[in-house]
Nucleic acid binder design. Structure first.
Length: 369
RNA sequence: GGGUAGAUACCCAAGUGGCCAAAGGGGGCUGACUGUAAAUCAGCUGUCGUACGACUUCGGAGGUUCGAAUCCUUCUCUACCCA
């Protein structure tokens, strides 16, 4: 492990943590939300707009970039940071999630996964070794172990996928060659506390600069999510960042930070933005296509400091979304991403000031009180 | 003035005796979306009703028929052609 991937804990408040994770492309202040840029772009958002929102870490995807434009091409073009003009930290997912989300087109065996391209149907194969190699070609600061994300309720399947994920983790560690990338292991185990604990014990026994919790927010209830975090978080090392993959909403962020999560990513702010919904910071959403906003001169959120809320009315945004204008998707995505980034910043401040318990009250679920 | 074609729901448009409250689009309304095969997907869209259903519709009026958006007569309007 290189020096650059040290995690410094600045403050804790209950289980909530404020920290800093050093990467070759800058320091990530946690808690942090990472907008998702699957195909080397946060959909509808420019890097300049991300900078204005104060984004730091963003996520991109091995599966998609391997298929198009190809990881070798990205390497030839100087790596992902240069290619997409994002000078700050980048994390690449391993392609493991696609094993789950496109399971009908995949054949999984112990060695790896054979899958069909969603673009042209051609056949391809990922193994832990090839996933690491692709991620090394892409050149993100944080790379993810190749894992298998199972149906969270099917215990037999969850167990076998978890065991395989552990074996694959060992192979990822051996395959990794670049010193300027941090490999994160992924804890699996579905909704089963015993499997989660077993997975956490195994994964955190490896000397890795950070750890992720995968396989959540795939249909389980909030109760189940909290139960899993209760089972897992006490087993996670204090001096390493904890990344909860694929989460979430403003409520998710606060509740999970209260359990000790440091890093989040989620497609929701950009997908909702394209599909006409916006987060309300305090929880819930507005469907900006609704007729009731047609003559509403208010911003989405009076308190919000994002570019969209500072400059545009609900009536105008509704007009853009009804007309399916591209700018509408951009403006709603800006609001949604900003909401999560600002919430993460505010949580960090509250933790540093020892005020997180009071700060978090409005968001906490019944099962988390 | 004569001829031909046409008039279907918010719009376009199928339907030419019963299976038609009426296909399909569009538009409109509503909902869903959590490590992105998603600027996607789903539902509703004559009126009333949760629903079974009831009622009113296919340019107007009248007729034929057990039964008409569909056949006949006539009127109105539209498009094109000939004077």
């Amino acid at each position: 492990m290189t020096k650059s991937f040290q995690y410094h804990l600045d403050a804790t408040d209950g289980a909530a943590r404020a920290g800093r994770f050093e990467t070759p492309h800058g320091v990530i202040e946690t808690p942090i939300f990472a907008p998702v840029g699957t195909a080397a772009t946060v959909k509808s958002i420019t890097p300049a707009q991300l900078h204005e929102m104060g984004a730091s870490l963003i996520l991109s995807n091995t599966y998609h970039l391997y298929l198009r434009p190809g990881d070798k091409l990205v390497a030839e073009m100087g790596g992902l940071h240069k290619f997409m003009n994002w000078p700050n930290p980048i994390l690449t997912d391993s392609g493991g999630f696609q094993v789950f989300s496109q399971s009908e087109n995949n054949k999984i065996d112990d060695d790896g996964v054979t899958f069909k391209s969603h673009i042209d149907g051609s056949s391809h194969r990922f193994t832990p070794e090839s996933s690491i190699k692709i991620q090394e070609n892409l050149g993100a600061d944080i790379i993810m172990a190749f894992d298998e994300c199972a149906d969270p309720y099917d215990k037999k399947y969850v167990k076998s996928a978890m065991d395989r994920t552990h074996r694959w983790l060992d192979r990822c560690i051996i395959a990794k060659t670049r010193e300027d990338q941090a490999l994160f292991g992924i804890v699996q185990g579905g909704i089963f506390d015993d499997l989660r604990a077993e997975s956490a014990a195994y994964v955190t026994s490896k000397d890795l600069p950070g750890f992720a919790i995968g396989g959540l927010s795939v249909g389980e209830t909030k109760e189940e999510m909290m139960s899993v975090l209760n089972a897992v978080m006490p087993l996670m090392p204090e001096n390493k960042p904890r990344y909860l993959m694929g989460v979430g909403t403003p409520e998710d962020l606060v509740n999970c930070v209260s359990k000790g999560i440091d890093i989040f990513d989620c497609v929701l702010p950009t997908r909702l933005g394209r599909n006409r919904s916006v987060f309300l910071r305090q929880g819930g959403r507005l469907n900006m296509r609704n007729l009731k906003f047609a003559k509403d001169s208010n911003p989405i959120d009076q308190e919000c400091t994002c570019y969209t809320c500072q400059n545009f009315s609900r009536a105008y945004l509704r007009h853009l979304m009804v007309c399916k204008e591209m700018t509408g998707a951009t403006l709603l995505s800006i609001h949604n991403i900003h909401t999560l980034l600002q919430l993460a910043r505010d949580m960090r401040k509250a933790i540093v000031n020892g005020e997180f318990e009071e700060f978090s009250q409005p968001w906490l679920w019944e099962v988390n009180k």
